[in-house]
Simulated scan of single mutants.
Amino acid sequence: MPEYRAHFDFDIRFANGGGMSGTGFRLDLPSAGATEDEIARLLVTHLGLALVDEVELRGLRIVEEPHRGSRGIPPVPAPEASRETRIVDLSHPIRAGLVTYPGLPAPTITPHLTREDSRARYAPGTEFAMDVIHMIGNTGTYLDSPFHRYADGRDLAGLDLSTLVGLRAEVFHLEDSWDASRRGIRSTTLADRDVRGAAVLLHTGWDRWFGRPEYGHGAPFLTGEAAQWLIDAGAVLVGIDSVNIDDADPSTGSGGGERPAHSLLLGAGVHVVEHLTNLGALPPRGARFTAAPPAVEGFGTFPVRAFAELPA
């Protein structure tokens, strides 16, 4: 189903005095037929305003555009166990030679038992292939457990599956809201959502560079103060489709050894999933997110098959 948004400037006057204005504002709409009065009411709801006397919209345009999560628009209902669902794959495939994070080793895949050799071990017409993969845990789309950052944190085997499977997803579509001079995602960008118990997924569009040299430079990231806000707001997991949830760009002053988002989130037991992809296929609300790694003891990071469930 197509989705629509309104583009406009506005002036708001309050019944008890004062006012506010905005330019280049964009707002999700329930349909293309929303009237100017309906859009004005949605604007007031989205901004959480009270005692509004008058709303004036200027340069109003209604365009077909994916929703970004404006308040006041009913969310897509979450899938139920008895209903058919559609699965959206959010993981990068792993292959031999794949460069996930610049500077880290790429995986190698070698045969342990070839199909040809197996024929001598089994009955006629029966054959198997058994292969060995050698890779760092930070390969493809992967999850960081607290043990990745803290020696006394939970390793992959110690994670509670209820914090990894079927999580309510709050997707923030940010690919058109930042530029090279302002790469850090701040709490003010996230503060209009209820994220308690949710997987917060940050769609920056940076996955378009995955596997290319551009992926490691100038990437968007989550600021430390935004990480602390998500912790205080009760998020269970935070995922991003970028090279790192922190600023890891070696060419910037803040891209050195500090990792405030990792330190804060993992210290609070909030899982981190990096190198997601295809987040643009998800609505702002209404999906269920899963990213479960194997239960490896004494290991902090491992690839996941991350996916979202949506009503069919």
Rank of each mutant, 00 (worst) to 15 (best):
N244S: 15
L47A: 02
L310N: 12
P250K: 00
R168K: 10
P2F: 08
P303R: 01
P260S: 09
V273R: 08
E84I: 00
L265H: 07
G184Q: 12
V273I: 13
G24M: 04
I87P: 01
A308S: 01
A6N: 09
G224F: 04
P111R: 09
A129M: 13
G140P: 07
V165T: 12
E36S: 07
D28A: 13
T114A: 14
F289A: 07
G280W: 12
D144T: 01
A169K: 03
E297V: 15
D11E: 13
G197E: 03
E64M: 13
R196C: 07
A235D: 03
D160V: 01
G253N: 00
Y150G: 00
A123S: 10
V44S: 12
R115Y: 15
D155G: 13
L113E: 15
T189C: 07
V296P: 06
L113V: 15
L98S: 08
R61N: 00
P74T: 10
G234C: 04
G19Q: 04
L29R: 09
L237R: 02
I87Q: 13
A32I: 11
A281W: 10
H67N: 14
E116T: 12
A219N: 10
G234H: 01
R86N: 03
H92N: 12
A40W: 03
T223D: 06
H203P: 07
F302L: 14
A34T: 11
T126D: 14
E80S: 15
G19E: 06
R71Q: 08
G137T: 04
F289I: 04
G205F: 14
L190F: 08
F299A: 14
R41M: 10
F307S: 11
G257N: 00
V243G: 02
P294A: 03
L279Q: 11
T223R: 02
S251K: 05
H7I: 13
E127P: 07
R115N: 08
F172L: 04
V88E: 10
N16E: 15
S162F: 11
P74R: 14
N278I: 05
E214G: 12
E175W: 11
H262A: 03
D194W: 06
D131I: 00
F8R: 08
A6P: 15
V88P: 08
R121I: 08
G97K: 10
H67V: 11
T85K: 12
P105C: 12
M1S: 14
D247K: 01
D11L: 02
P124V: 09
L282D: 01
A268S: 07
G22D: 04
R212W: 06
